[in-house]
Nucleic acid binder design. Structure first.
Lengths: 210, 210
DNA sequence: CTAATTTTTGACCGCATGGCCAGGATTCAA
DNA sequence: TTGAATCCTGGCCATGCGGTCAAAAATTAG
């Protein structure tokens, strides 16, 4: 692994086992974090759960920080890809917004461990600067996506006049906030009901007034 | 400190210094966590920030777990007291709901460190069971309060028919979700705008239809 | 003022962690 | 087949953690 830096320069070589192990370890980390909690998810524990020696992680990742970074990345990428696919299939802005909300909840319900792990992790970004970066890298793209939907809905005349940025933050916030409670106590929250409520609510809140 | 258990039995004696130190340490812990992040907030670091020896914390608290527990408690109690005072001053259900949302954001804006610390902490409840307890002890009372407001609004005919539990989770979620983004990046979120948006949105979403 | 009690200190312990590395196994290229 | 590159192992280490303790300091009571 001397070539880690050069890798980007090279094209094909540095892979297969490398990529496979990385994926395997990242997935193992997610499930370990979700089931045991971040504080208990030491490199030793993750390695044990994956079924490899501890050194393997050090070999494929620069350190625990990079592992966690990759975990967060995988979590966001996977989620956003699913949502985006659903959104793109919708014909107009109101239905795209609806698809965004529904897809978010559908993906949550089908991938609980991902969100349990995410909640565990996102508290542990120590410095304010780290939080900023986390937000900029992970959260902003989501909001941006939403903002685009909202803005085009205004252009097409489907939506009333509002600040797209603020409403995007509100939509994203509502989804994440419900998700958070659901992560804490699965049975206290009825995801489907909340999704439906949010859909009708944001429909009312965005549609052009009579 | 042999009398820790008897304390409840005694009446006045076991206090002043004891209580003062406890408050001091809890507050110090909050500010250390908020500024350095939970992972960096060791007992040594907290003690240093407070300006006392490490042993003092062990002397006044059973352990780090109890400290964190007290921190979370203080955070919730303080927040809820503020919100409840505002809500109680409102004359009818729609205005109580509005007061709930506005008070939440107002308190956030005035106590940023509290929420930064809270977000740091709430990810680190390891076991699923710990999360359940956290949710049950801290979150449920909030939702319960909200549910009461909503239910009485339905009884009085101000609100349309909906599931109070679901809508309470939705309101709470929307507030917390926006708060979360604001914790990550203060400048990316305009709290006042989001508050206003949420107020009008939930007004639209709850009012009895024509 | 003195004796008893509460509070504080700073050194200390055992432990788990993240990271490191020498050497062995495996895979790959020629 | 053989030599080189890659991949993996298991043990090692320094670090920092939470927690404990004897003794010193401060406070209180008599």
């Amino acid at each position: 692994m001397r070539s880690k830096i050069i890798q980007d320069g090279q094209k094909k070589k540095a892979s297969f086992i490398e990529e496979a192990r990385r994926r395997q370890i990242v997935e193992g980390a997610i499930s370990t974090i979700a089931s045991a909690g971040l504080p208990q998810a030491s490199l030793a524990r993750i390695a044990q759960d994956v079924g490899v020696s501890k050194g393997v992680i050090s070999y494929h990742f620069a350190g625990k920080d990079e592992l966690i970074q990759q975990v967060v990345n995988a979590l966001f990428v996977e989620t956003n890809r699913f949502i985006k696919a659903r959104v793109d299939r919708a014909p107009d802005a109101p239905r795209r917004l609806r698809a965004f909300i529904e897809a978010s909840f559908e993906f949550m319900a089908a991938n609980r461990a991902n969100f349990v792990a995410l909640v565990d992790i996102w508290g542990s970004f120590g410095s304010p600067e780290a939080k900023r970066r986390f937000n900029a890298d992970m959260y902003d793209p989501c909001r941006h996506h939403l903002e685009g939907i909202l803005r085009r809905g205004q252009d097409s005349g489907d939506f009333r006049d509002f600040s797209p940025g603020t409403l995007a933050a509100t939509v994203q916030g509502a989804i994440d906030g419900v998700m958070l409670q659901w992560v804490f106590d699965e049975e206290a929250i009825d995801l489907a009901d909340c999704a439906a409520e949010l859909v009708t609510m944001f429909d009312l809140a965005t549609r052009r007034r009579a």
